[in-house]
Simulated scan of single mutants.
Amino acid sequence: MHRQTELDRINRVAWNSADAARVFTQEKTFSDPGEEAAFGWLAPRCSGTPVLDIGVGTGRTIPLMTAISNDYTGVDYTESLLELARSRYPTRDLRHMDARDMSALPSGHYGLAEFSWNGIDCVDYDDRVRILEEMYRVVRPGGYVLFSSHNRGGPGYLENIWQLLPHFTPNPLKLGWRTLISVRRFQLGTLNYLRHVKLNHDYGAYAVKTAAAHNFGIVIVYTTLGEQRRQLAQVGFQSDTVFGSCEGNRIPDDVEDSGAWWFHFIAHKPMAACRFD
């Protein structure tokens, strides 16, 4: 069992909540236009190869990944969510596993390892590197990785508890309904925020901050384009492209700032890596 950090403790509570099960089982294909563009870019390059789906949750990405290849393995460290995925896709190879230690999986095997919905942001910085190192280990030379990560310069980083207050409307019935919903959300969100705000820290190239999702029930990493590209190179990957979440636009290599809520990073393990692994 991997050591449990403060981020682990907080975020695991959220992933085991009824709110997480509700959100993750909503009928949805791609999370955003950027993810759709990233899958479109990867599909012809990874078709038919073994694929690894990390942080599979309740199974949203299973149809997306199996459209690329039927040689599929999915893993998640939250047993309750994984059981929901197994009930929905009983014939798929779904395993209870922490992305920081995937030693049960073979090295140099997968043509694509994917970690969706900003799951890599939910561990601290050192563990983030461990996940990328494990992804590097399990993909074959020439194989690809795809993961999404919150943008330190995006609108999500500026979210605060005041957004939980009801939006004004001149319709008294709508305003009353919004107020009733907001009362509980604001109380719970404020309580969570006050519990977690001590962990907020801006390191410049990246930041750790309580996020609005799940009523401010999670604490995550927000990265910058430059820092994530540097981190990928540190692990040994060669960056290929980055897609912004909002419009699915491809972000040029020389761009350092973006207004996207989050990024979809694609990188590959160099063919020359087979001489060193």
Rank of each mutant, 00 (worst) to 15 (best):
H2M: 15
R9T: 08
I10C: 04
R12Q: 04
V13F: 12
W15E: 00
S17N: 09
D19M: 08
A21C: 10
A21D: 07
K28S: 04
K28P: 04
F30C: 08
S31T: 05
G34I: 05
E35G: 06
F39T: 03
F39H: 08
L42K: 10
P44F: 11
R45E: 08
G48K: 06
T49A: 12
P50A: 06
G55M: 03
G59V: 05
G59C: 03
G59I: 01
I62A: 05
P63L: 13
L64V: 12
M65L: 15
T66I: 03
T66S: 06
I68M: 06
I68F: 03
N70K: 15
D71N: 12
T73E: 01
D76E: 06
T78M: 05
S80M: 04
L82E: 00
L82R: 03
A85M: 11
Y89R: 03
T91D: 12
R92T: 05
H96V: 13
M97A: 10
A99L: 01
D101Q: 05
S103L: 13
S103W: 10
A104N: 13
S107L: 09
A113E: 02
S116N: 12
N118E: 04
C122E: 00
D127E: 14
R128D: 07
V129W: 11
L132R: 04
L132Q: 01
E133V: 13
E133Y: 07
E134M: 02
Y136K: 12
P141R: 00
G142I: 00
V145E: 09
F147M: 04
S148H: 02
S148R: 08
S149I: 05
R152S: 04
R152I: 07
G156S: 00
W162Q: 11
L173Q: 14
T179P: 09
F186M: 14
N192G: 07
H196Q: 15
K198G: 14
V208F: 02
T210N: 02
T210D: 05
A212V: 02
H214S: 15
H214F: 14
F216V: 13
G217V: 10
I218V: 14
V219F: 13
T223M: 07
Q228D: 00
R230Y: 02
A233N: 07
S239K: 09
G244S: 03
S245G: 05
D254V: 14
D254P: 02
D257A: 14
D257H: 15
G259L: 10
W261R: 14
W261Q: 12
W262G: 03
F263V: 11
H264E: 14
I266T: 02
H268G: 02
P270L: 13
R275S: 11
F276W: 13
F276M: 09
D277V: 06
